[in-house]
Structures are given as C-alpha cells and as structure tokens.
C-alpha cells in the first residue's frame, strides 16, 4: 500500500477542481430541469416503477456500442496504419527486382513471373489504400442515420435467408452500421496517433533489428495509444450516444419507448430524465476511469507536465554517479 501523502497545495487544488466541476455540472442540470420541467414537476412514482425498463434498454446500447467499438478499433487501427503510408515505392520494387535478377541464376520464365507478381502485389496495395481513403470519406461524409438504414437494406436484400426474425435483422444491422461507422472514425484517430510518434523511434527500432510489425507493436503503438486515449474515449462516448439511433430499426432501446408516444403519453419528461441520468452516469464514470488510466500510463516528460502528486512512485535513491569507464 502506498503511504498516504498529506495534502500539499497541488492536491488541494485538484480536489477543488473536482468539486467545482461537480458544482457546474449539477448547476447546468438544475437549469435544464427548471427550463424543461419547471413547476410541472416529475412523477416520482412513474420513475420508481419504470427506471428498470430503461436501464435494461441502455444495456442493449452499451452492449452494441462496446462490441462495435472493439471490432471497429481493430479495423480502424489497420485502416489508419494503411493510410499513413502514402506512396507506393514502385522505384524500389523495380530496383529490388533488378538486383535480384542480376544475382539470380533463375530462368527468364521464372523471373518474368516473379516480376509480374511483384508489380501485381504493389498494385493491389495501392488499390487497397485508395479504397481505404474512399471508405473513410464515405463514413465521415454521410449521416449515421443513413448508414443504419443502408446496413439494414444490405442485410434484408442480400441475405434474406440469414435471419429468422426481424429483431435479429434489426440488431445485426444496427451492430454492422455502428461498427462500420466507428471503424472509419477510429481509422483517422489511429492515423493521427501513428503519425505523431517521432520517426526517430521507428528508425531506432529498425536499427535494433525489429521488423516493421515488431516496431509497430512494441514501440509505435504503445506510444500512439497513449496519445490517442482522449479522442478514443470521445469516440466511445459519441458512439454510445449515437447507438440510440438504431431504434429506427426497431431495436428495443430507451428511445424506442420515448418514440412510442401512445404507450408512454404523459410521461415524456420522466422518460427523458431517466435516460439522461443513466447516460450521464455511465459516461462520467467511464471518463473518470479512463482519466485514471491515462495518468497511470502517461509517458513522463511528454506534453505539459502534470503534477507529481498524481503519480507517486518509488524512486531510486539519487546516489552520486559512478565514474564512467
């Protein structure tokens, strides 16, 4: 157990920060309440009787969001990586091939085949990259609402036999659209992260004998991930809230209930209050957890220095240095 550090000035300010933030949030909420509900008041009996329904509905969103986010992250990483590489080294391909042909004793037939394959491979890589560009632009440029309907249409029109009931079609389509959407956005987040890591880091890794993939895994990605945690968190929260849109397909989410005016007439504000509270709770807790992780894994000396108080750690005794050999 870490020894409890007595509050220093920094820590006190930090506590005050948190308090102030809480006061502001609560103040804004109070104002929203006053503006929208006002003297009409909320029906506590309705809330007490029905909040469980909405909690259940939000778990559907949470589940969809998390699955879509995780799959989208994997796809987004590779897509983002792909997009960091802009040029096709045709010159290098030809040069390598010429060097190979010079030293090789293989027949003309084999060599021409090898050249064909090499050029085809370079061309394929080029094509995949341009497709990646197009994908990101399409995802960013069109509304999620349309994407959801599009995903649904694809499943219904192209795979009519795959699903046994409308609910599973709706759920799958929602998941597909959310995944495709977040992959596009996360690709850009990853691209930014990967491009921010200094090229000297890669060079040093390569000079030690790391492969391209090894350098990515052990040096670039760990650094990039730390840089992109805030936008990635943002993306998760955004996706979570956007996931409410899948109600249009009939997936049972909280908004479905809101939209179903006949069943819930007269309690619209209660429903909004419940949903708002659940979303706020989840996102605030999530943000706090991520914030803690962020300071735990932050790279010392990078960016604006945070206070030491946040990350106490055992430091070796500062002995006078041994003379160099």
């Amino acid at each position: 157990m870490a020894k409890r550090v007595p509050w220093d000035r920094e820590t006190r300010w930090r506590r005050l920060d948190t308090l102030l933030a809480a006061v502001i949030v609560l103040g804004v909420l109070a104002y929203m309440y006053e503006l929208m509900v006002g003297s009409r008041g909320l029906d506590p009996v309705y809330i007490a009787a029905n909040y469980g329904l909405y909690v259940t509905a939000v778990t559907v969103n949470l589940y969809m969001t998390t699955v879509a986010y995780a799959v989208g992250m994997t796809a987004g990483f590779f897509l983002g990586w792909l997009r960091t590489i802009r040029s096709v080294p045709i010159k290098k391909v030809v040069h390598d091939f010429r060097a190979f042909a010079d030293t090789s004793s293989r027949s003309k037939f084999v060599l021409s085949g090898a050249l064909g394959l090499t050029v085809a491979w370079a061309g394929l890589k080029y094509l995949v990259r341009r497709l990646g560009d197009a994908y990101v632009e399409i995802i960013r440029g069109t509304p999620l609402f349309v994407q959801i309907l599009f995903a649904w249409s694809i499943l219904v029109v192209n795979f009519p036999g795959l699903f046994t009931n409308p609910t599973s079609v709706a759920f799958s389509a929602g998941l597909l659209a959310l995944t495709a959407n977040t992959a596009g956005y996360q690709a850009e987040i990853f691209r930014a992260g990967l491009q921010t890591v200094h090229s000297g880091q890669v060079e040093a890794a390569r000079a030690l004998g790391f492969s391209r993939l090894g350098a990515m895994r052990h040096i670039v990605l760990p650094q990039a991930l730390r840089l992109i945690v805030p936008p990635l968190t943002n993306e998760y929260i955004g996706l979570f809230k956007a996931s409410t849109l899948v109600f249009i397909l009939g997936v049972q989410t909280e908004i479905t209930f809101v939209a179903n005016r006949n069943a819930f007439a007269g309690h619209i504000f209660e429903i909004f209050a419940i949903v708002t509270a659940i979303f706020l709770l989840i996102t605030v807790v999530l943000a706090k957890v991520i914030q803690a992780l962020e300071s735990r894994f932050r790279i010392p000396g990078l960016g604006i220095q945070q206070t030491r108080a946040e990350r106490p750690r055992a430091r070796p005794l500062r002995l006078p240095e041994a003379p160099t050999p």
Partner: peptide
C-alpha cells in the same frame, strides 16, 4: 532485420523509446 542485428547504431538525437 538480420543485417541490423549485426551492426549497432547510435543516433544524433538518441531516439530512446520514450515510453
């Protein structure tokens, strides 16, 4: 990768892995 294992390199800007 094999070639680079045979020859160590030290850079002007150190390039230590910052994390």
């Amino acid at each position: 990768e094999w070639v680079r294992e045979q020859v160590g390199m030290v850079f002007q800007s150190f390039n230590l892995f910052t994390h």
